[in-house]
Amino acid sequence: MDQFWENEYIQIAANYSVVILCLVVFLAIFEMVTKYKNWEEIKKGNVAVAMATGGKILGVANIFRCTIEQNNSLLSMIGWGIYGFLLLIIGYFIFEF
């Protein structure tokens, strides 16, 4: 089984799956803390909200890019990703204030 997890393609697929799942969860958290409904505003054609949401996606993706580069295990990648997201959301509240 160790040989299975050491395969580079399996590691890439595992990292990708975990990052997509975390991205969905983190965007749901962003949806709860914003004053507006992101996806409803995007459907209405609100370009500013679409750009802000794109920035949030880019921020989370960048956090996970760094965690994938620095960590070898999925659990440590998720842990540091959550920590990075907490810092990102604190920064969001600071600039929103």
Results as ranks from 00 to 15, higher is better:
L86Y: 06
N46H: 01
F85V: 03
W5K: 13
Y92Q: 01
G84T: 01
L87Y: 08
W5N: 12
F85R: 01
A28L: 08
F95A: 11
Q70W: 07
A14Q: 06
V19P: 02
V24H: 10
L21M: 13
L21I: 11
D2G: 15
N72D: 13
E40M: 12
L58F: 11
D2Y: 10
E41Y: 09
L74C: 08
M51F: 05
A50G: 06
A28Y: 03
L21G: 14
R65S: 15
G91N: 10
L87S: 11
N71R: 01
E6G: 02
G54V: 04
M77Y: 00
I10M: 09
K37N: 14
V18M: 14
L88G: 06
N7R: 08
I82E: 00
W80I: 07
G45H: 05
A52M: 13
L86A: 11
Q70A: 15
E6S: 04
N71V: 01
I78G: 02
N38Q: 11
A48K: 12
L58M: 09
I90C: 12
V49G: 05
I90L: 15
I42L: 11
T53N: 01
I89H: 01
G45M: 05
F97N: 08
V33R: 04
S17H: 03
S73N: 05
A50T: 02
N7H: 07
G55L: 07
M51G: 03
